[in-house]
Design a protein around this nucleic acid. Structure first.
Lengths: 200, 200
DNA sequence: CCTTGTCCCGACCGATCGTTCGGTTACTCT
DNA sequence: AGAGTAACCGAACGATCGGTCGGGACAAGG
């Protein structure tokens, strides 16, 4: 049977190790030698599981993008007043970002040197655009302040959310996903709302 | 005379080119060959002006750090109510970040693979800490909301400011430094202030 | 037992890495 | 004109890069 498996590496478990090293040293700064040391197997053995270095990157950013785009398919992100859909998306972005922290971290650091990286950047722009449209709709309803450009506000809020990957560490006694999401929503919408009570 | 100069490269003009390439390809993703092509001189000629690749990085992040720490020495950042000093620092951070855009961009992307990078990370943490203390003092005065942890708010606001390097481009008909600084201050403090009018 | 296929390894590939070196050009100063 | 030197170059260095190759260890199925 092919279903019986040993405790050896699979493409997925290997990916976990690779993504961690990528985030520590940067993708370009990580050699296959680094990966083999971290995984505890020889360099050539890695190629038994994956096609190469770039495939590991592609698998990682795909996972991050799937998580983010999945938010837009959820019901609360599709129906209701734009401003409420927007707040839901913001909160879910924080949750997904934390749930898939190493993968999203890697996605947000991609530069565009290879085809895989350029594809990842394009999909990121697409996601940003979808959220920006939501904000624009909320502005058209008069539910968010309009004295700052929609484009600019989107970028700043995205910057706030995405910065989470730079400091959040899931070490036992830390904030959970919900608490961070609440804080982000309160800070963002407390400043965003035209006349609000500071509560989401 | 040594003051008479030709139109050849100096360590500074070479730095301009190098920082631009570093930001496009990433520091690790940039080879000396890339730099020589971008600068229009041979690879070996670069070593006539600078000691090596890492010195270019050190010069770049030093310039960024000097700009940021310089803010804390300005009078408006040293005297007055903490909340007002904080807002001044936030505005000036945006201005410095834009004025020294490529250098700060590079600083914010440093990973920690070399001694120079680790030194840069340490100085960044020091700067963040200084600003966090300012926020803490403003919170002690009751001038900013206290329902969110000071540490968390600091990180989120830093994330918002630092994200500017990811999208701001000084192409002619864009926003100027002041406009961006206003927007950031309004968005941040509109959410930060306990009972404000949304105006800095 | 022997085959089959998974998993892994050391050795090695050509290419590229950051850096060094000896030497040439071209400008400045006397 | 001649000396001095800043700026530059091609060629090459050892090291490391991502990736390949042939084969060995080991478990499962016959």
């Amino acid at each position: 049977m092919t279903t019986a498996k040993r405790d050896t590496y699979t493409p997925e478990t290997l990916l976990n190790v690779a993504v961690q090293v990528f985030n520590e040293r940067g993708y370009d700064g990580t050699s296959m030698e680094h990966l083999s040391k971290a995984a505890g197997i020889s360099k050539s053995s890695i190629y038994h599981h994956v096609a190469g270095k770039e495939e590991l990157l592609r698998r990682a950013v795909s996972r991050a993008l799937d998580g983010l785009f999945g938010i837009l398919d959820e019901e609360d992100a599709r129906v209701g007043r734009p401003v409420e859909r927007l707040e839901y998306v913001v909160r879910r972005m924080v949750e997904v970002l934390i749930a898939e922290l190493p993968y999203v971290t890697l996605l947000l650091r991609v530069r565009g040197n290879t085809d895989t990286e350029r594809w990842a950047l394009e999909r990121r722009r697409e996601f940003d655009h979808r959220v920006a449209e939501l904000l624009k709709a909320a502005a058209a309803d008069g539910d968010v302040r309009e004295d700052i450009e929609v484009r600019l506000v989107t970028r700043l809020v995205f910057g706030m959310i995405n910065s989470i990957v730079e400091w959040y560490r899931p070490d036992g006694r830390g904030m959970n996903e919900r608490e961070v999401a609440d804080a982000v929503a309160q800070l963002a919408f407390g400043g965003l709302r035209k006349a609000g009570d500071g509560r989401g």
